[in-house]
Amino acid sequence: MADISMNKARVMIRKALQKGRELELKPLSVVVLDAGGHVKAFEREDGAAPGRFAIAQGKAYGAVMLGMAGTAQMQRAEQQGYFMNAVNGVYGGQVIPVPGGVLVRDKRGVVIGAVGVTGDTSDNDAICAAFGIEQANLVAEI
């Protein structure tokens, strides 16, 4: 199974933050999780709220554990709230089903992790996460 190297994780974070500054977004926090949902790397920009780690992790954790990016999770929550409530019961309330949790796939399409970004609107967070992933020569699923 492919894995996200520390180098690739750092590229994803650096480029996601760069995109946020380019778009003049609020201070961001970015986490990279491996395929098992474990933290590979995390950074919080100066000025970002201290509680942002849990939000970034929740966005990414839901994506990797369900194999479903944040946008799809939000749609599912809107259509079948009972499902996402059950999922959060199973995962101890750790899933935040909104855009900004982006799946990371290798070139063969295998899920190798997820990136969670928080700090601005969920849609802007997802844009930054996808940019970071693509700059690391991996495939983003928003």
Results as ranks from 00 to 15, higher is better:
L17C: 00
L17V: 06
Q18P: 04
Q18F: 04
Q18R: 03
K19Y: 13
K19D: 08
K19H: 14
G20R: 02
R21C: 02
R21W: 02
E22Y: 02
E22Q: 15
E22S: 07
L23A: 11
L23T: 03
E24Y: 07
P27R: 09
P27C: 15
L28P: 10
L28Y: 13
L28V: 15
L28A: 11
V30H: 00
V31R: 09
V32A: 00
V32H: 03
L33V: 01
D34R: 02
D34K: 00
A35M: 15
A35G: 09
G36D: 12
G36H: 08
G36K: 06
G37A: 14
H38Q: 06
H38M: 09
V39P: 08
V39L: 07
V39D: 15
V39F: 03
K40H: 06
K40W: 01
K40R: 14
A41P: 10
A41C: 05
F42I: 03
F42G: 12
E43W: 14
E43D: 12
E43R: 12
E43P: 10
R44W: 02
R44D: 01
R44V: 04
E45V: 09
D46P: 12
D46S: 15
G47V: 14
G47T: 08
G47D: 00
A48K: 06
A48C: 13
A49G: 11
A49N: 05
P50R: 11
P50M: 12
P50H: 11
P50D: 07
G51K: 08
R52D: 13
F53G: 09
F53Q: 12
F53T: 12
F53I: 07
A54W: 06
A54E: 05
I55N: 01
I55V: 03
A56N: 11
A56V: 00
K59R: 07
K59G: 12
A60E: 09
A60V: 00
A60C: 00
A60H: 02
Y61L: 06
Y61T: 08
Y61K: 00
G62M: 04
G62W: 02
G62Q: 05
A63Q: 08
A63T: 07
A63I: 05
A63F: 12
V64F: 12
M65F: 00
M65N: 04
M65D: 10
M65T: 09
M65E: 13
M65S: 10
M65G: 01
M65C: 05
M65I: 07
L66D: 13
L66Q: 12
L66S: 03
L66K: 03
G67Q: 11
G67F: 04
G67V: 04
G67C: 01
G67Y: 06
G67K: 08
M68K: 05
A69P: 05
G70M: 12
G70Q: 07
T71M: 05
A72W: 11
Q73E: 01
M74T: 10
M74S: 13
Q75M: 07
Q75R: 11
Q75W: 11
Q75A: 03
Q75Y: 08
R76E: 14
A77K: 14
A77D: 05
Q79H: 11
Q79N: 06
Q79R: 15
Q80L: 13
G81L: 12
G81A: 07
G81H: 13
